[in-house]
Nucleic acid binder design. Structure first.
Ligand code: FES
Ligand code: FES
Lengths: 143, 143
DNA sequence: CAAATAAAAGAGTTCTTTGTCTTTTTTTCC
DNA sequence: GGAAAAAAAGACAAAGAACTCTTTTATTTG
């Protein structure tokens, strides 16, 4: 479904959102532990997201990662698109070069609905909203 | 969603079903052309499916691939499970080691429905039924 | 300013997937 | 039985994804 990088990215951003509601910052080691991901790998991914403005960071002592309001308003769809591109939103289920209504593959009509459900799931809630639910209900970012 | 191997496999099996309704057989080169896949790659995949009894083959002149009735009755889910395993049917959207109802990830409740839709799409129709529709309506296996 | 801290950057490594090429085996058909 | 046809098998190559390690840069704080 998603690439490993994308899975880690989503988990990391939700984790950061959750841990920095109080305006603090959180370091890469804690993040890696918190979401059970390889430290240097998630560091690379966050570097990338940082360059693209989807997460904020500060170097030096008492530095770390955090999220601007604008980043909190981003949807998971934005994250997925940034990392995996939009194949999941518009690609053909059977790998035809172009999904097409006029030359549909055998799964097209059914798959179209599924893609819409996925889009809806990723588009509806923002990082901020998710992290609120993370606090309230019992949701998990690692096992 | 699916691996390349799995995409090619589905397309190939549907193509074979379609081309051998009359009891004939079809060669690997035609299959590769018919579904626009690398010839030797799809050959490997069909070898594999053949060993597992999901497609039938015969060597020598006038040989080729075809499908027993039992193979025609297989669902796409069977094919996907054979090649990609069952991660798509039961894996966690965010890559947690185990999808779990009691320790759900933030996407779990929504994603569960989507997984069910995917299962349904793959489980419902058999290869044979798909290939009938391929003939009747205008469906495509390459672009 | 110096030392310490933390992210950024860069350069690899390893593993998996995808794809190619060559040889072998089986079967048919003359 | 020999030639030709076709899949099976095996070994390899290329690309991409996932992951690691080292060095650099920026920032803080005493
Ligand atoms: S053509 Fe395959 S999903 Fe649209
Ligand atoms: S726990 Fe992630 S999908 Fe079920």
């Amino acid at each position: 479904m998603f690439s490993k990088a994308c899975e880690y990215a989503i988990r990391a951003l939700l984790f950061i959102a959750q841990k920095t509601v109080d305006g603090s910052k959180i370091g890469i080691k804690e993040i890696a532990k918190g979401i059970d991901s390889p430290e240097h790998f998630i560091a690379k991914i966050l570097q990338d997201l940082s360059r693209k403005g989807m997460v904020q960071s500060q170097k030096g002592p008492s530095g770390g990662f955090y999220l601007h309001q604008s980043s909190l308003n981003a949807s998971l769809a934005d994250v997925v698109r940034t990392i995996d591109g939009d194949s999941i939103f518009s690609g053909c289920a059977l790998g035809l070069k172009q999904c097409s209504e006029v030359k549909p593959c055998p799964l097209h009509h059914e798959f179209k609905k599924i893609r819409e459900n996925i889009s809806h799931m990723l588009q509806t809630a923002s990082l901020g909203e998710f992290s609120q639910q993370l606090e309230k209900s019992k949701l998990f970012l690692k096992r």
